[in-house]
């Protein structure tokens, strides 16, 4: 079991390394950072000066190793833009704040929104999927099919706007955007959770149906156990592995989907700063956000793996 976890940790480390390398390559191919910082009208001499200061004139390998070393120490460069005017940059090193802390500062807001969305998705989808499997062809069963179909075909962006239109603009029940308490988080969280609800309910339902068709269910019924106990103890115990898998996948989906939703709802999280940075070509911030998001997704996957080990005796006891 420990070897299993160790192996997963190692795999995650390798994946992180690959992502860092992609970030490095992508960063160099977007354009010359010096021109990005100084602007297209800057003269050749100051561009060369900044390139030298930034280490961009060094051989690629040196740059790469330096990038990796810095990244390992949590240094993903300094922002080109935040908290400074272009004039201050001059020909010298940018004095902007380090990118990583700037991004990390935004995490609580993102976790708040994503956490509420994940909670909504799981609390709605898993019980709905279980009930649909227990009562096939019931109204709920059909409703789940419709919702998951809608979830697959609806664009999040459009859904978010429709939610705002209905609940904020027309009905006036909730604020259209902004950061704050429960009233503010409901609409963006629902927009973020909608698609996941459909998929999770569908997977939960089919995992439960698979288990409910197995011979051990007849044994459980022959013991005179209630239908609730047969489903919720016997079938769910074995269906929990696919349910945890899809939950992990959907948590990752929500964490990446949060970027666009934060933008739409002016939610001051990591998504907003990332899109901001993209539009302003603030490369270090973009790099730091990607790094942080990938790290979070890796941690989620690791937790899912741990959950497998706990849920499946055949893995746990090996």
């Amino acid at each position: 079991m420990f070897r299993y976890i160790l192996r997963r940790l190692l795999q995650s480390a390798i994946l992180l390394f690959i992502v860092l390398s992609v970030v490095f390559v992508a960063g160099r191919s977007i354009g010359d950072p010096a021109i990005l910082i100084l602007g297209a009208e800057a003269d050749a001499a100051s561009v060369l000066q900044l390139r030298t200061n930034l280490g961009l004139e060094d051989p690629m390998l040196t740059q790469y190793l330096r990038f990796l070393g810095d990244a390992l120490r949590g240094d993903l460069g300094a922002t080109y833009r935040y908290g400074m005017s272009r004039g201050e940059l001059g020909g010298g090193l940018p004095e902007g704040r380090a990118a990583l802390p700037l991004v990390v500062e935004r995490l609580p807001a993102t976790f708040y929104l994503a956490g509420v969305a994940i909670a909504i998705a799981m609390i709605v989808a898993i019980p709905a999927g279980i009930l649909a499997a227990m009562y096939p062809r019931s109204l709920l069963d059909r409703a789940i099919n419709v919702i998951s179909l809608a979830g697959v075909s609806v664009v999040e962006f459009w859904l978010a706007l429709m939610l705002v239109l209905i609940f904020a603009v027309t009905l006036g029940w909730l604020p259209t955007s902004g950061y704050g308490g429960i009233a503010y988080v409901i609409l963006p969280a629902m927009a973020l959770a909608f698609r996941s609800i459909g998929r999770m309910a569908q997977i939960t339902r089919s995992a439960m149906l698979d288990e409910l068709a197995k011979p051990y269910i007849i044994t459980a019924r022959a013991k005179g156990l209630s239908p609730a106990r047969v489903s919720l103890v016997h079938a769910l115990k074995n269906a929990s592995v696919p349910i945890v898998t899809i939950s992990g996948d959907e948590i990752a989906t929500i964490l990446t989907g949060v970027i666009i939703i934060e933008f739409i709802f002016s939610w001051p999280g990591i998504g907003q700063i990332t899109l901001d940075a993209l539009s302003r070509r603030d490369l270090p911030i973009v790099q730091a956000s990607i790094f942080v998001l990938v790290l979070i997704v890796l941690i989620v996957n690791l937790l899912v793996d741990l959950a497998y080990v706990i849920l499946n005796p055949r893995i746990r006891l090996r």
Partner: peptide, 9 residues
């Protein structure tokens, strides 16, 4: 073998 629940002791 298949009549016992694989997930419970």
């Amino acid at each position: 073998i298949t009549s016992l629940n694989p997930g419970l002791t």
